[in-house]
Amino acid sequence: MTDNEILRLIRNNDGNGLSVLYEAYRSEFLHWIRKFAHCDQYEAKEYYQASVLIVYENVHQGKMDDLKSSLKTYLFGIGKNLAWQSYRQDVRKQKAGAAYYLENYITEQSPELAQWQDHQLDLVRECFQLLGDPCRTLLDLHYFQRKSMEEISNQLAYKNADTAKNQKYKCMERLRRMVEERTVTQNQ
């Protein structure tokens, strides 16, 4: 399967896209990162899983629409950055792992949120999971998959884009309140 075909699968939200990407460069990446980062097979897999997911996220965010290099170069470049970062950020923390790399990646996207408390991202994630449908699907479609209100209203059978937009606002409000309540509880 060519790079473009893999990217198309991911873009079209085909369930296989992520697995195909994961299988495509797995052996080569694991072999390479073990040498590059002096790590064992377990750590190599953590780097690989995070790298694949960052590529996957970038595809959805439209950052790979004009990809100049090969998919492999891009993927390995991400792996290299993660390895350097964990080296610089003190590997002794023993906190590293794919989930940690992803958390770092997300928070680095928003320097405005530098003062976030530890675990704040996890708190929002937990609340989001408790949100239930249709809110979860709606917010995921809009904020992760970057679907327009028009597309969402078609997919979730809302009357029109404005109805979907109103619903999205209500869902965000619910999420905001849940996070607020949990933050208060945690601080007590």
């Binding site: 992520l18 992803l102 928070t107 929002v124 994630r125 989001f128 992760f144 965000m172 996070v179």
Partner: peptide, 28 residues
């Protein structure tokens, strides 16, 4: 309000990635 909104959006993106991470872990 801006920071709070941004925080929620990033949390939603992170939640999606963590779900997919579970998928990769199962595959592995």
């Amino acid at each position: 309000k801006y920071q709070e909104h941004l925080q929620l959006i990033q949390g939603i993106r992170y939640a999606h990635l963590r779900e997919r991470l579970e998928q990769l872990k199962t595959l592995e």
